[in-house]
């Protein structure tokens, strides 16, 4: 491999290491900021120790369809009908993908 190529790769790798952590922008915080309060009822990272259903193990699609059903009152829950109405569809998708990535 030519020196130029090696240097290009090296510069890229170094630059990536230096820059990536700085790229944490407002949009990256958003799913976590939306999802963090859920743990108050659904347990740490959505893993419920009690009677309230866990969010862990659910697919993003499951969470989105449940949240939308609560939001539109197509599904009758208890507090979730009132809580789901507090989020836009986009926010519901962000929260759903956040929880579906949890182990």
């Amino acid at each position: 491999m030519k020196q130029k190529s090696w240097i290009t790769i090296a510069v890229f790798v170094t630059a990536t290491q230096l820059v990536l952590p700085c790229m944490v922008s407002a949009t990256d915080y958003r799913p976590a900021m939306l999802a963090n309060p859920c743990a108050g009822c659904h347990g740490p990272d959505g893993d419920s120790p009690g009677s309230i259903p866990s969010l862990t193990g659910l697919s993003a699609d499951d969470i989105v369809s449940s949240m939308k059903a609560f939001k539109t009152d197509q599904r009758q829950g208890t507090v979730m009908n009132r809580i789901a109405k507090g989020y836009t569809d986009e926010e519901i998708h962000l929260m759903a993908s956040y929880f579906s990535r949890k182990p």
Binding site: A39, G40, C41, H42, G43, S48, P49, G50, S51, I52, T78, V79
Partner: peptide, 8 residues
């Protein structure tokens, strides 16, 4: 759910 909330 009240108890579930507390445990969570």
């Amino acid at each position: 759910y009240a108890e579930g909330w507390y445990r969570a």
